[in-house]
Amino acid sequence: MDNSMKMRATMQGDVADVKVLIKHIMETGLRKDKDTGKIIPAHFIDLVSATLNGKTVLEMQWGVGVSKNPYFNFKVKGAKSGDKIAVSAVDNLGTNFSGEVVIS
């Protein structure tokens, strides 16, 4: 389950630049199946949090308007090379996703 997240974190001056990509369908619940005519149920990541060395730095709530295979980029001041960034996420069906990266 945990090949679903790709992360990269690099220092830019005294700020860590973190880029994250999560593999997820992000189904809106508004589309119809072309064959059956039935609505495809919503399936999307709704909560995401990021930590620097275990301390929360970013908390996010997402709706169905976040693109499929969500990408996000954030910056943390006061981080240094070798520090650890961790991201965890959960979708509306209760599936958990997590990833970790060491800042280079």
Partner: peptide, 23 residues
């Protein structure tokens, strides 16, 4: 159909910056 796409809270040194892709 639902205008709110995402909401972000920053703490402990996170810069007030965010980039993502939306529908």
């Amino acid at each position: 159909p639902n205008p709110l796409v995402a909401d972000f809270t920053f703490s402990n040194g996170a810069e007030p910056f965010l980039a993502t892709h939306i529908k």
